[in-house]
Design a protein around this nucleic acid. Structure first.
Lengths: 328, 328
DNA sequence: TTTTTTATGATAAGCGCTTGACATAATTTT
DNA sequence: AAAATTATGTCAAGCGCTTATCATAAAAAA
């Protein structure tokens, strides 16, 4: 393993000088600077970041806590975040917390032990306190953790509203919200709220058909089948695209014509779903912008932990993608 | 920040004793052990893993280099790998290398600088040498890097063959392979080989219709449209599910009936695609097994870097998932 | 009781790097 | 030529933890 002393030897100077070059302080002549850089290159030297971190230098590690990257939405979001972080010189520690409180807790401990510079929290099984206790810079996706932790989120309320209105515009009058309404603080709630509000404005009756997030596919299908077979429904606001796809598929099985008999709008609009299910109307979250903002805010917190932000809540605009399933 | 000395003070013993407890060596009475553990718990103490790593202890960090987790297949694979690693006490540094050689190179440097214990390589923009030069334990997914680096892969050849045979069984006689055939060493090649071999056995003519992986959606669509409109084709082996979905969608647009006029089989079979596009027949890669084996092999290499493995090539069995698109 | 085993402590060195203090050259400015 | 500036070096301490050595005490075995 090449170390600082090796570089110094190669460059014919002292370790202090090499360190001065690397950390860019004190007096250094261009000549020496160049010599040192050459030596580093020749030896393929990389400062041991473990050793550097021990002096209190930044680790340039960021913990990403999200439910699961196998979900296309989170996959894309994590992908974009990772990309931004990389551009800013950070490395990403990936923590798929699922909906496992204990796992998330262990992760938090671990991230602290590894001296990460900050955390982007996108899975929310744990309360504020545990996050607060880390004493680390944190930004949150989609859920409020506390007053002094910035939160970035799509405008879920608006999305729920947009979707409902769109279904109405296309003639739907028995509009259901399908999703998991019980989760407190979960973004689904805001979407539901947008739905409810709009339903009220339109003087319709609200219908909520619960489909639990982490149930098996079969159970979800059962719930949806029940809805389609036993209820008078001509419009559905789905809590997310995957649920919408399920509804699309089951409708097909049951011979329900989309959009004539039933109109559907999903939520999330990840690139994969948009590109590969072109029939589905959906509320698109601006994933790249979300990623960018999360990283920007986190970096701000890291560079200046005490500075108060002028804003702690960021709702990014959503967009209605009109396609066949909502009755084009 | 709570440190070793604090724990020692709290537990009323020396740092040596605490260290003995943590690292489990030397003589320790049950009584003291308990006292120390209690002190650690009370103080919410976590050994600073940066400091530990500096003694040459393992960092318990693993670098995951994959193209992009926004792709459902890689998303699921990374998710499963992360899960396995977590269970084995490892943390995951996520590196989305895309198809960017330079990014992958920087990542490699970075992983070395961070003293990761090992690397799982799943993006292959770089040659062997650069990986070899890291001197780190490595296992590879889907591509041979060198003789002494274990490679785990699904049986792509078999998959290509199975798919072709299945289309034939259902009456297809003008069977095309659609994908990116030029990438050397890429798993697609093996799938193509399986296709070719089977076509030969069946005494049919092989047709390869190139659709380049990293082109834009529009260009891909154009290529597929060209295929469907201007060629006599009644069966398609797609190099991956996303391509297959594209073909499915475009066929629909063109009024081509699936599977009557055209039969399609995809490749990968990620859970998302399986669950949410139930019409698509596909060759399913055993993602959980792949993840498990990758982690197992890597851990073996880490724990015993010099030990020769009895096998360096692992082809895991694929499975044909028969559904509507191949003519059920 | 004496010997052996077990338990704990004190001390110090070291992992690779950073940084400050101080000293001495080499260069540039006056 | 003297003073000021710039460039480099030597040395040492320290980041938090591990580990070896030596010493001593307490408990168990002889």
């Amino acid at each position: 393993m090449v170390k600082l002393t090796d570089v110094a030897a190669k460059a014919g100077c002292s370790v202090t000088t090499v360190s001065r070059v690397i950390n860019n302080y004190g007096y250094i002549s261009q000549k020496t600077r160049k010599k040192v850089h050459e030596a580093m290159k020749e030896l393929n030297y990389q400062p041991n970041s473990v050793a550097r971190s021990l002096q209190g230098k930044k680790t340039k590690l960021i913990g990403l806590i999200f439910p699961d990257v196998s979900n296309p939405f989170f996959g894309e979001l994590v992908s974009k975040i990772e990309d931004r972080l990389f551009k800013h010189g950070y490395k990403t520690i990936l923590c798929n917390a699922g909906n496992d409180k204990e796992k998330e807790r262990i992760y938090l401990q671990m991230l602290m032990a590894n001296q990460v510079d900050g955390i982007i929290a996108g899975a929310h099984n744990l309360g504020i306190e545990e996050y607060q206790r880390t004493g680390l810079p944190i930004v949150s996706f989609d859920r409020k953790l506390s007053d002094n932790i910035p939160i970035v989120s799509a405008d879920n309320f608006k999305g729920g509203s947009l979707a409902t209105q769109e279904l109405y515009n296309h003639g739907a009058r028995h509009i259901y919200f399908v999703g998991n309404p019980t989760l407190d603080g979960h973004p689904t709630q805001k979407r539901l709220l947008g739905y409810k509000e709009t339903i009220k404005e339109l003087k319709l009756t609200e219908h909520i058909h619960p489909v639990i997030f982490n149930e098996t596919l079969a159970l979800k299908e059962m719930a949806i089948r029940d809805l389609l077979e036993n209820h008078k429904v001509d419009g559905i606001v789905a809590s997310d695209d995957l649920t919408a796809l399920l509804i699309l598929n089951i409708s097909h099985d049951l011979g329900i014509h989309i959009p004539k008999d039933l109109k559907i709008i999903g939520f999330d609009g990840s690139k994969v779903v948009r590109d590969f299910e072109p029939r589905l109307s959906t509320i698109v979250q601006p994933i790249p912008s979300i990623a960018q903002l999360l990283v920007k805010l986190l970096e701000k917190r890291i560079d200046n932990p005490t500075e108060e932000l002028d804003n702690y809540t960021y709702y990014l605009p959503v967009e209605l993608l009109k396609r066949e399933s909502s009755g084009k």
